[in-house]
Design a protein around this nucleic acid. Sequence first.
DNA 1: TGTAAATATGAATATATGCTCATATATTCA
DNA 2: TGAATATATGAGCATATATTCATATTTACA
Lengths: 137, 137
Amino acid sequence: MPTPAPKPPSRADCTCGTRSAAAEPAVDRPGGTLLEDAADLFRVLGDTTRTRILWAIADEGRCVCDIADRLAMTPSAISHQLRILKQARIVRHRKVGRSVFYTLDDDHIRTLLRDAMEHAAEMAPPARPGGRRRIRT
Amino acid sequence: MPTPAPKPPSRADCTCGTRSAAAEPAVDRPGGTLLEDAADLFRVLGDTTRTRILWAIADEGRCVCDIADRLAMTPSAISHQLRILKQARIVRHRKVGRSVFYTLDDDHIRTLLRDAMEHAAEMAPPARPGGRRRIRT
DNA sequence: TGTAAATATGAATATATGCTCATATATTCA
DNA sequence: TGAATATATGAGCATATATTCATATTTACA
């Protein structure tokens, strides 16, 4: 959901003495867009089907029907998701005959996936006594 | 012949010779849930408001109204998002008088944010000649 | 104690999104 | 060339989700 209406509640609204004083030039430091780009990347990665696709092609390139088989989903559904991953430049593709092979674009993605799983693994024991816990957003 | 069966795409459907042979035990290796947990984490991070909140509290803890001021959004909207971040155990909170201070829970998040921005930064020049490009999912 | 401030939360709503279905395109091979 | 295969894509639908609004809760302070 793209950032909606920038409601302008004035700074003066908050009178709590605990508020940090220095009014920074902008909300986010590195130019704004960089942080938003990061959020976009996370959003693309934030879907189970897409992470499963990425995991499936993490070791070696695979064609669409191969991925579809492995995930037990229709090639159409996979293709739709691959389009999103392509647009985000997360995967690359090369055509071989009738097939199209997809691979990870670079190592950043592998690193992000690994780090996120690491975080999840460390989080798991204390946080999820009853197993997987779907976080509602 | 009426129509091809509903659609449980069996492995045999794909006859392309390019498909990888070895039928791996499962779609994803590390137990399945770990990969899904990673996707969940990404999903929570994949929202501009939430990344802006995280960035705002990356250096030091801030109260809700402070964050709201900085993002120029209502405390209610911020509070809703903080709840999601809390449930995902991405932020911690401590109460001080009427205010509630939020901080990042651990360094993993900082690392993920930094890596994602790094990826975005490297991606940027060739991929986005016209500036920020919203990726439709 | 009573009022105001800071935060939290439930309901409602507009929008976004993932999948299915139908169909188009591209490529191989008989 | 024509049939079959692999992939891509647009429309439609059911669901998810981010914000607003109203209201509840907690705490400080006069």
